[in-house]
């Protein structure tokens, strides 16, 4: 049996466990809430993270455009890039998928001799993590950019009046 088929069959279990591990990186009270509240507007972080994870999982099942992959990563990373995590903690969730897959498919990996396939899969998860660095950096740059833009906007009416916008200063 191919690993892609196994990943499809065990999607719910693997995704559920992966999501659970991410929630556990929050304080216990918060983890309970993220897991429990199902309304996408009352629990925006839980919703966006689960959507992003599902998308990322999809990238392992079928080929996708790079933009789509980046968008799935961004869904989660743009939240974690703001929250109380170091960069390594913000991105560690991607690597957790390896643990989940090894645990969930332990029996099949041994029985079906999937060593080569699992190596390839794990390499692609590493690739996701590397792309995650790009997304994380872009998000942090975005924070500095919006800080600068807001500072300009505070007096932007005045700047327009004095014509400074036309000089490219704004």
């Amino acid at each position: 049996m191919q690993i892609a088929t196994l990943l499809s069959q065990k999607k719910a279990a693997i995704l559920g466990r992966w999501l659970s591990m991410i929630y556990e990186s929050y304080p216990p009270e918060t983890a309970i809430f993220l897991r429990k509240e199902k309304n996408r507007f009352d629990n925006p972080a839980g919703y966006r993270i689960s959507e992003g994870l599902e998308g990322l999982y999809g990238t392992l099942l079928q080929e996708m455009e790079r933009d789509q992959v980046m968008a799935c990563l961004d869904e989660i990373i743009r939240i974690r890039a703001l929250q109380n995590f170091t960069p390594s903690q913000a991105l560690a969730f991607i690597f957790l998928l390896k643990i989940v897959i090894r645990q969930e498919l332990a029996e099949e990996i041994q029985k079906e001799n999937l060593a080569a396939e699992i190596l390839d899969l794990e390499s692609r998860i590493d690739g996701l993590a590397l792309l995650g660095f790009d997304v994380y950096t872009k998000r942090r740059e975005k924070i500095y950019e919006i800080k600068a833009n807001e500072a300009k906007r505070r007096v932007s009416g005045l700047m327009r009046k004095t014509g400074l916008t036309e000089d490219g200063l704004l």
Partner: peptide
Amino acid sequence: PTPAELLPGLS
């Protein structure tokens, strides 16, 4: 540290 060990809630 492993990735899981970086996250207090997991390690």
